[in-house]
């Protein structure tokens, strides 16, 4: 336990000393500049345009920053043989893995809170709080995915690509399912096979279109049931990724 906490603390320290805070600041500045621009060209719903565009951009930026930071951190440790050194001490593999995950999750949560703060300009505090908490959990999920792929795949580019693919599929799978089962979908055996294939794929993916929604900021904050469902999506999939990562690491001969 103490070993895992020490690893988490070092992961957090590494995030603080990395370019991550500067990049987060640049993303915030870019989002606010974009909000100022769209407010000049919108003729209606100016506040909603600013809130939705800023939230969408900051959400994507938070996820991208967490994923690249995790992949870069694990790649650097692999190159420096840090993991071999750490595991040669009394620290167990699960302690290292879970410690890293906890450190990245806390860094993601700090990023989520910083990115939610400007949204208070346009949305109600309760809605912003729900969005921030959801984004913190989403960053934790992305951190878990990036950690899993970065430890399982040797190449950072492959790990980043796999993380991005999983994330983008998770965000669009709801719309893909709706298209596959909609009235314009092809009928017959081929159409049904495609629908089943999409349903099977959806089983393996988190429904990321149901979390950190801009609609919460624009219209009504989520109900307890809706927010609970979003939280369950994120926590359950993070647990799955963590379990898969621990399984893979336990089998690896280092």
């Amino acid at each position: 336990m103490h070993g895992a906490l020490a690893i988490a603390r070092f992961a957090l320290l590494e995030a603080r000393r990395s370019p991550l805070p500067w990049l987060a600041g640049a993303a915030l500045a870019a989002a606010l500049a974009l909000a100022a621009f769209v407010s000049q060209v919108a003729i209606a719903e100016g506040t909603k345009v600013q809130a939705s565009v800023t939230a969408a951009l900051l959400r994507a930026a938070a996820v991208f920053l967490v994923a690249t930071h995790v992949v870069a951190s694990i790649a650097r440790e692999a190159n420096d043989r840090v993991l071999d050194f750490v595991l040669a001490s009394a620290l167990s593999r699960p302690a290292w893995y879970l410690g890293k995950l906890a450190g990245f999750a806390v860094a993601g949560a700090i990023l989520a809170v910083a990115f939610a703060a400007p949204l208070l300009l346009w949305a109600a505090p309760g809605a912003v709080a729900a969005w921030a908490l959801s984004l913190a959990l989403e960053c934790m999920l992305v951190g878990a995915a990036a950690l899993f792929f970065a430890t399982a795949l040797a190449q950072p580019a492959a790990a980043l690509g796999a993380t991005a693919g999983l994330y983008l599929l998770g965000r669009s799978i709801g719309a893909i399912q709706a298209i596959a089962s909609g009235p314009i979908a092809p009928q017959g055996v081929g159409g049904r096979a495609a629908e089943w294939a999409v349903e099977a794929l959806a089983l393996l993916l988190p429904r990321l279109d149901a979390v950190s929604r801009s609609a919460w900021l624009l219209y009504d904050p989520p109900s307890a049931a809706e927010f609970g469902a979003a939280g369950a999506v994120l926590v359950a999939y993070t647990a799955l990724l963590a379990a898969a990562g621990l399984f893979d690491l336990a089998r690896r001969s280092l």
């Binding site: 769209v38 909603k48 565009v53 965000r171 669009s172 719309a175 990321l208 801009s214 624009l218």
Partner: peptide
Amino acid sequence: LRAASFGEPEAVARL
């Protein structure tokens, strides 16, 4: 359009 919004239909609709 919804599929291309990657789960951000509100932002994509306004953009």
